[in-house]
């Protein structure tokens, strides 16, 4: 079946929800499609302390839920947990197919955000939750008194590692460079900790299991030599990637890192198609900047309609 809207927003994170609030308040018939629930990365952020308007830190879950309810209050329709199987961004009438339904609109805002990057090496998917984790607060206690590997050397990797040190016996950090990318204070705390050992200039090449333990194969990037280490678990924190898989076969212009290129009005290279939030090629990725992008994109849509 086909359903017509004035505006389709793909992605219900803060960028998409801000855009939806503005558009719906301007009586634009708006649909938000998300492959998950509404809220994006914010709904899973424990506490947000830097979003204006909240004197005390607000739970990300609460903030996301409020944004969605605000959009709903003004009439935004949601199609959640819906998988986009095909879409056409070109021409006056654009369409999106999701879960067997077709949705058409003249304007589309893409706000699909970003997700934690996977290593994409053998064993990573198979052992997720059974030796491989992506969240220290969630899974750290399963490794109390154990020896683990942390992959990554940026801020989030080191901050999560400091948290893991409250539980584990030791951490071996596998890092692709020969210096940590994290802020100096955090990096120093890790380097000075006697429970921490760092494998510099190494990258994991695969994970296997030996009973309860994980076997990690890593390559020394300088000598090309492979090393194998055995630990109880692996935590992976290697940055974020834009969510653009569903858009790969469209004529959208992407930056060399895979983000969508826009002008300051959030217009992409395709007429009637906008990008907002973390998926856009820009310097700062925060809730406030995503909300700002969503607002600008929506105001452009309103102006053109």
């Amino acid at each position: 079946m086909s359903h017509h809207f004035d505006l389709i927003i793909i992605g219900a994170g803060p960028a998409g929800l801000a855009a939806a609030i503005y558009a719906s308040r301007a009586a634009i018939k708006t649909l938000v499609i998300d492959e998950s629930s509404a809220g994006g990365q914010v709904k899973t952020t424990h506490q947000v302390a830097n979003y204006p308007g909240f004197i005390e830190p607000v739970s990300g879950h609460q903030l996301a839920s409020n944004m969605k309810k605000q959009a709903e209050k003004y009439g935004t329709k949601f199609e959640l947990a819906a998988e986009i199987t095909d879409l056409n961004l070109v021409g006056a009438e654009k369409w999106v197919k999701a879960d067997g339904e077709t949705y058409t609109a003249k304007q589309i805002i893409i706000s699909t955000g970003s997700s934690p990057r996977l290593l994409n090496v053998p064993g990573e998917k198979e052992f997720k939750g059974g030796g491989i984790s992506y969240c220290a607060t969630c899974d750290g206690e399963f490794y109390t008194g154990k020896d683990i590997v942390v992959v990554g050397g940026g801020n989030s990797a080191m901050e999560e590692s400091l948290l893991l040190l409250q539980f584990v016996n030791s951490i071996t950090v596998i890092h692709q460079f020969d210096a940590l990318q994290a802020e100096k204070v955090t990096a120093e705390k890790m380097i000075q900790n006697p429970k921490v050992n760092i494998l510099w200039s190494h990258e994991p090449r695969g994970f296997e299991k030996n009973g309860e333990r994980m076997i990690i194969t890593a390559e020394n990037l300088k000598t090309k030599e492979m090393v194998t280490i055995e630990r109880d678990g692996v935590f992976i924190f290697v940055g974020m990637l834009p969510n653009v898989d569903a858009l790969k076969n469209t004529p959208l212009e992407f930056s060399k890192y895979g983000y969508i290129v826009t002008n300051e009005n959030m217009e992409t290279n395709i007429e009637g198609v906008y990008a907002a939030g973390d998926v856009r090629d820009k310097k700062y990725r925060q809730i406030a900047t995503a909300v700002g992008d969503g607002t600008v994109a929506s105001l452009e849509v309103i102006r053109k309609m």
Partner: peptide, 16 residues
Amino acid sequence: RMGPMCIPVYEVFEVF
């Protein structure tokens, strides 16, 4: 728990 790995699953359950 109310953590980043769990919340998305609860919310998909709510939609489903």
